[in-house]
Write a protein that binds this DNA or RNA. Structure first.
Lengths: 335, 335
DNA sequence: TTTGATTATGAAATCGTTTCCACAAATACA
DNA sequence: TGTATTTGTGGAAACGATTTCATAATCAAA
């Protein structure tokens, strides 16, 4: 491995000059510059990242946190982010948090340890009182989820309240009366809009319910629903209920698929006996046995905007704190 | 950010001693050791990776290359790898190559630049003559695909020849006679077993064909098939054929899904008019409109074995060069 | 005791860069 | 023409760790 001084020696110049060429800073004569350049590619020289980092310069790496990469919503989100970052010459470090706060801290510590220039959080596992401390070490951007605190970090997200409000209205228009609700959260203790991601969804749902004078049974709330397996369990639970809902907002397409699968097994007709509304619009949702009606998240847009925001931040620009995109209802056959 | 000398100062000792404690090398008295330890967590000290790397020690990071993260086969593979690596204290850098040789080199250069301790290649975009050069910079493990050259790097893969041979036999048993074949490769110019991943698949297919005295029309070969979109195109092409196949091996579940989708649109009955055999067994394949019969890849096993192999390599153990797992035919309804 | 090995500790060199500082040469301004 | 600025260049310090080397203290064997 050639070092900077090998290059300097070959070019007959000082390491300082070589370094100036590498970082193309001014005050280098054209003659010497080309001398250095030819020496560099003669030796196949590439600066050692660790050494540059040690001096406190850029790492040209970004961390992106997601709960799990096998969740298509997040793999597409990451994909969109990475694409943009790539164009700008950054490499991307994907960190799976598995929804564990400690793992999120691992990612944030990369900032502290100068291993990355910034981190893009696609989910939030720690309170702002913890995350906020890391802003002094590097740039942070929030995507998808958000924090209600008065924070200074750019946030790119979709309007979950509006989307769920409209979606619930849509269900009423379709003639449904008894709407069940599934979510990934462990519990829904908050119902005020503007608290966070899940609260917004639930608030939108509730507001529509109230406007339609519709009741909501506690039996119709299903928490900790993440996987298709969870979906299957939910369907079984629904069918064992005295007072059954006639439609369910599944929280995610994955859960919706599980519900659909188990409905097939249990011979429950969708959408006649039970409507199923997904969330996300995964690529496969259209080719399910019963094509899934779903609330589409603007994944690509969010990813791209998040990357853009981060890049602007890196360029020292100040940017608007919040960008709110719109959810879209994709009507197919399951509702 | 506290440095090692801050710790040394607080503990009233030299940096050497602190370093010894950090790397728990011998010859440190219990008393001083605990002195250093309390100083360390009093300051919240964490060694700066860049500085350690500069001295040539471990990075505790592994790179994993995959064509694309949104491909579920690879996201599950990565997931399995990362899980194991995580347990061993390594973090994982996921590099998407988009099937471009240059991007694969980017990943291999991480080795050269001492940014990672090893790289796990889940696909192969460069010849061994290129990849082999990097073994001197760090450890390399091949998963999923393989190279026929006499290489020294551990390879974990599935027996594609055997799987496709059995799958084709299975189609004949089912009464199919005219079998089409789709693949992601740009062309199939090799048909000899043992050349590579795709050749093995095709050879297994061909051998079964020959044994059954069955012909193969060039019109029934579809190349560059990656996405569901490609699958849709393929179905249209098939339907425009004079001499139509009665079943197709789709190359991947994604392509199979596209075929299924378009078959729905074109009112082609599956499996009556056209059988569709997928490859991979993605989680959703079971809940498609027509549940997909598919050749299941041992993704989890491969990922775990690959990670294990890498860890053994890092520990200085020599390991058997090749581990070959078995493909499994999952029978559902599309064939 | 004396000698030799082992253990515990610190000083200083080292890794490969960037950047501050010094200084000379060239250019601009009066 | 003299002074002030700009441009070009190299030397050396700095970044934060690890590691080699030297030395002092302790222990074991004679």
């Amino acid at each position: 491995m050639a070092t900077i001084s090998d290059v300097a020696k070959l070019a007959g110049l000082s390491v300082s000059t070589v370094s100036r060429v590498i970082n193309n800073s001014p005050h280098v004569s054209v003659k010497k510059r080309s001398l250095v350049e030819s020496a560099m590619d003669q030796l196949g020289y590439v600066p050692l990242p660790a050494a540059r980092q040690l001096r406190g310069s850029k790492t040209n790496t970004m961390a992106v946190t997601i709960p799990r990469i096998v969740n298509p919503f997040f793999s597409y989100l990451v994909d969109a982010i990475e694409q943009r970052l790539d164009e700008a010459g950054y490499s991307t470090l994907i960190v799976q948090t598995f929804s564990r706060p400690e793992e999120e801290l691992t990612a944030l510590n990369l900032l502290k340890n100068q291993q990355v220039d910034g981190v893009i959080l696609c989910s939030i596992e720690n309170p702002w009182s913890v995350i906020g401390n890391y802003t002094k070490y590097g740039k942070i951007v929030l995507v998808n989820e958000y924090l209600k605190d008065d924070i200074k970090v750019p946030t790119i997200r979709a309007n979950q309240y509006d989307g769920f409000y409209r979606a619930t209205n849509f269900l009423f228009e379709k003639g449904y009366k008894k709407i069940a609700y599934a979510t990934g959260r462990k519990s829904i203790t908050f119902v005020k809009r503007g608290e966070n991601f899940d609260a917004d969804r639930f608030a939108g749902f509730q507001d529509s319910l109230n406007e339609h004078g519709s009741g909501f049974s506690h039996d119709w709330l299903f928490t900790s629903a993440h996987t298709a397996e969870d979906g299957k369990t939910i369907l079984k639970q629904i069918m064992s209920l005295q007072d059954k809902p006639d439609v369910i907002i599944a929280g995610s397409d994955e859960v919706a698929m599980g519900i659909l699968q188990e409905a097939e097994v249990e011979k429950v007709k969708v959408p006649e006996e039970l409507g199923v509304l997904g969330v996300d619009d995964q690529p496969v949702s259209a080719s399910l046995r019963v094509p899934l009606t779903t609330i589409k998240q603007p994944v690509n847009e969010m990813g791209q905007e998040a990357a853009k925001a981060m890049l602007k931040l890196m360029a020292g620009e100040t940017i608007s704190k919040e960008e709110i995109l719109k959810l879209k209802i994709i009507e197919r056959a399951s509702v």
